[in-house]
Write a protein that binds this DNA or RNA. Sequence first.
RNA 1: GCCGGGAUGGCGGAAUUGGCAGACGCAGGGGACUUAAAAUCCCCCGAUAGCAAUAUCGUACCGGUUCGACCCCGGUUCUCGGCACCA
Length: 833
Amino acid sequence: MNERYDFKNIEEKWQKIWKDTDVFHVTEDPDAEKYYCLEMFPYPSGKIHMGHVRNYSIGDVVARFKTMKGYNVLHPIGFDSFGLPAENAAIQHGIHPAVWTSSNIKEMEDELKRCGFSYDWDREVCTYKEDYYKWMQWIFIQFWKKGLAYKKENPVNWCPSCATVLANEQVVDGKCERCKSEVTKKDLSQWYLKITDYADRLLDNLDKLPGWPDKVKTMQRNWIGRSEGTELDFDIVGSEKKLRVFTTRVDTVFGTTFMVMSPEHPMLHELVHGTEYEAAVEEYAEQVKHLSDIERTSTSKEKTGVFIGRYAMNPLTHKKMPIYISDYVLISYGTGAVMGVPAHDQRDFDFAKKFGLEIIPVVDPGREDIDVNNLTAAFEAEGKMINSGKYDGMDNKDAIVAIRDDLKAIGLGEGKTNYRLRDWLISRQRYWGCPIPMIYCPEHGWVPEKEENLPVLLPTDVEFTGKGESPVATSKTFVDTVCPICGKPAKREVDTMDTFLDSSWYFLRYCDAQNAGAPFDPKKAAYWMPVDQYIGGVEHAILHLMYARFFMMVLYDLGLVSCEEPFTNLLTQGMVLKGYTDADGNWIVGKMSKSIGNVVSPDEIIDKYGADTARLFILFAAPPERELEWSDSGVEGSYRFLGRVYRLVYDLAKDTQGIPAVYKPETKDDKQLNYILNNTIKRVTDDIEKRFNFNTAISAVMELVNELYRYKELDDVNMGLMRAAAENVVLLLSPFAPHVCEEMWEGLGYSESLYRHPWPQCDESALVKDTEEIVIQVNGKVRDRMDVPSGLSREELAAYCKDTEAVRNLTEGKQVVKMIAVPGKLFNIVVKG
RNA sequence: GCCGGGAUGGCGGAAUUGGCAGACGCAGGGGACUUAAAAUCCCCCGAUAGCAAUAUCGUACCGGUUCGACCCCGGUUCUCGGCACCA
């Protein structure tokens, strides 16, 4: 141990030792309790950023802590390495995506290693490599065999800039999630996965995940959007056909005054064919087709629509009602048609006002301030039924059940559950992804490639144009093949898979990363899974986290894994922000961004202060789930603290050389230091284990260090105690700043790495004090404090305090109403006047 | 519009079960060491009044419950995030 804190040499030295001794390598050990600590793997964009450092520092603290606690800890890393940026680089710079990707991975591996994260690099998974995507294809085929993959022509989301289709989940506010271009519609035949079959399980299982943030669970619930209601039929006047609608408010059926169909409704053309309304209706439908999602779904837009010249019969009132088409009714939800109840649905209200349609109230608000017969807005809350025949007077909630049952009895309706969730569109018209291993035979239709022929390799003779064709189609060698069933000429699917499939099972591959004969050995997966702690950005709350849960459920049904839910506990870390001055001179704190220029690179910080300082600052500046504001002077502070610890341990190692960490506290100061030492052990342990509050864990160590600086200057010090304190400071700090702690540990005379050294244990007896300070309050205000013997009960404390001079002084001349004693805390006197 | 978070000193944040508000750090001020500077070590640091002891006020705002409220309840404002013509 050098006298100076030379972080550069220390960090290089210990990274080399960890590597040479293979200290982070783990295998399945049935006798040890396992712990799977996982951070979301990065996309290899070129360099790691502070968000990565934060994510992986949090995970590393957990992994190192659990290791010291004696768990067999799996802590892997890899790269989510298929995807668009690599292909765009290929188009722009003429460099092959594989070359671009692998050189980025190399660079990021080096950066991650410079941070000193405790990864088992033997389990590294890169999704673009054949040995991974081979099994991706195998899994896809298992989905297909189970009937969970299908190809279908549909209007799909098309991003003109990325030149590919997008899943619903990847369209945000009508824009492409990645490039922010406006998304348009296209009719294309595409592959889908039947995630909707799992909607109920995905929803219901959320209740079995107490270790997930409510926020994420709520977001997933909203996304799945389960909605229970009724489907019912309306006769169409002059037609054999019936118009079926879905409603959650069947209680309002007596208030229906019109019907609205989606302009894409399949029955529309025959209903208007040859009538005077045909031209206007077809024109409206054509207009709607050209609207973007943004225009169409804008809630501020005035309602539009066209009467189609047809009428429907209300099955309960037998009233004739006009049928319209309007773009506010979506073909993709429910039945693509709704009953218009203007009195009790705001959209229907707006539509009725626009077209001068009748408004009939059927639920009485029972409020003075609302005139039922002259509504200014739809009344959507609960109330008693009116204008509804035999249902009048019922609570509308009861009427929902009663009317639904009555409709069912006469064969006009039934209960029905609808979901907002749609099937997952997984085809991408891009090159840099996993080929979909399907073959089209004119005779047998779509057939999967034989499993023994996997992987279906990505061809290399491909042109990158960035135009709207699948690049793979330009290969001379790829497309033509033979049918796996009949051997006759057939064609391969040229689209590739959405990269979210790759990231839906990578955590299983980590369990058995080198397996050449299977995606993973189910026994090994059963040992490690589920992930005990998953850590990543909240931006994956819906997409990745729901797809991964879906995959896990399917693999569970296939008997490949032994649990349904992949992630027991989830921590969503906040973003890293940095302040800057904008064009108008305002101070703004925002996300680090190259275009704004408020980026701090991890390399720069590690060069200047070392990885330990970078990690410590990032963990100290804010609790993990909150946003973190980068502060240059804050980093200085963390650096100063590590130097302060280093000097302290250096001195103490010298002073206590050869003295064992054995002691008996004698003086008042001994007892106080011993108390703080053990209390710190307890606080740090709880903060890491139970609360994930690393900021307070670090501040607890700071307090202990401050106390130790005070203690060591005393005349009468206990050498064994100082030694114990120094050793514990090093151990407690080691998950946060591992390199410098290893160095200090060695300086304290230990020849073995502290990586697997047992975590310090709190000596509860040291926390028992002879006396404790309690606060004396008058009417809840602090007036005095005094030392009392420890461990007094409520009654004993009250009796003790009542007779003290301090209390007598405070109560003199006053009328005491009541006295309240709280053991270990306070004594409160309530006085009158 | 709906569903979630959040609001505490100059700043980041702490207060774990309703019990000392502001731990720890940053910034700032003062002192020690030094020829000097850096580094380091020590002290002070919510507001107002006061030489001081101390007193009063203070956790976005208004009100309530309680001996006692940053914490619980009712209402309001601002702010961040998610969803949104899903019938």
